[in-house]
Amino acid sequence: MKPFQYLRPTGVDAAVRDLTAQPDAAKFIAGGTNLIDLMKEHVEQPTTLVDINRLPLATVEELEDGGLRLGALVTNADTAYHPLVEQRYPLLSKAILAGASAQLRNMATNGGNLFQRTRCYYFYDTSMPCNKRHSGPSQGPAGCGALHGYNRIHAILGTESADGNVHCIATHPSDMCVALAALEAVVRVSGPQGERTIPIADFHRLPGDTPQHDNTLRPGELVTAIDLPANGFSHYNSYLKLRDRASYAFALVSVAAALELERSDASGDQISAARLAMGGVAHKPWRKTEAEALLVGQRPTPDVFGRAADALLDGAQGYGHNTFKIELAKRAIVRALSQAAKLEPTE
C-alpha cells in the first residue's frame, strides 16, 4: 500500500474541509472494508485518508413522519439487527445479511456501503484495460477488458452511453443498496455548499462515457445519513439473491420485491402497491416504476409477475458469458414476487 497522510477530524465540517482541500487526492475512510483492499491493489491511491469514524454519525433515529434515519457510521450489522429495522424494514435486514460476511458487516458502515466499488475482475487488475479505473497511466490502460473478455458477472442493463457505445459493463455490488432502492431511501449529504438530500435512485449513476464516476456526489460531499420513508412494506417482501455458490459471493442477480396486498373480494387479494429493484445487473440498482405499475390493481399471480419482469428487463443485452442473466433475472423476479406475496416459501 502506498504511503498516505492520515487525518482524523471529529466534526462533519472539519471532515468536509479536509477533503475539499485536495478533492482529487483525498478519500474518506469509515469501515474501510473495500477501500483498503483497493489501496493494497493500487486501484485506489489516495495521498490523504480522512478517517471519519470519530464523527457523531452513528445513531439510528426515528423521524417525525414515521420514517427512520440511519446514521452513516452505523455498521451494517447493527443496522440489520436493529429492532426497528427488523420490525419495520425487514427487506433491508434481509438484503444486508445476504451480503459479505459477519466480520465485514461488523466493520462496514451504511454510508460506506453506498461507495462500494464494482467487483469486476478487470477493474481490480491494474494490468488490464479499464475505463472505470483509468484516470492516468499509473492506474493502467483505458478500455474495457470485460466487454470482449470473461463477463459472467457483468451488466445486462443500462450499459450504452448516449452515443450508442459501451464503455463499461461493471455492476454495482451492493445488496443493501438494492433494498434501499426498493424502499425509496433518501441519502443525506453535507458538503462545501451545505447540506442536501439525494433520492437513492439519483445517487448512483449509469456508466455512460464517464464510468469512473459511480455516483452523483459533488467534490467534498460527505454522506451523513440514510433516511427510510415510513412505509417499509414489512408484511410482504422478499430479497432473493442468486450467486454461483450458496454463501459469500456477490449476486449474479438479486431482487428486492415489496408488495402491499388488499383483500378485494371473496376470491382473493389484489396488489395495491409494489416495489421492485434488481442488483447484479447494472451499474446501479435497477428499478423502473413502469414495471411496478403493471402490478398495481392486479391479483398476485405468476403471469402478472412475469409481465412486470419483462417490463423491468426491457432492453436487456448480454455480452456472451452473461447472456444467461436475462432469463435468470426474469425467473428471479417472478420467484421473489411470489415469495413476497407468500405464494411460495423463502429458504
Binding site: 482524523r8 475512510i29 483492499d37 478517517d51 466480520q103 465485514l104
Partner: peptide, 27 residues
C-alpha cells in the same frame, strides 16, 4: 488471503469479530 476473504486474520475489536488484514492499526 490478505484481501478480507479468508477470515484467518479475524480478531475482536471492541467485542466484535473483524478482519484485521483490512483494518488500519490507526482505526
Amino acid at each position: 488471503c490478505d484481501t478480507s476473504s479468508c477470515g484467518a486474520c479475524t480478531v475482536h475489536v471492541d467485542g466484535v469479530a473483524v478482519k484485521s488484514c483490512t483494518l488500519l492499526a490507526a482505526q
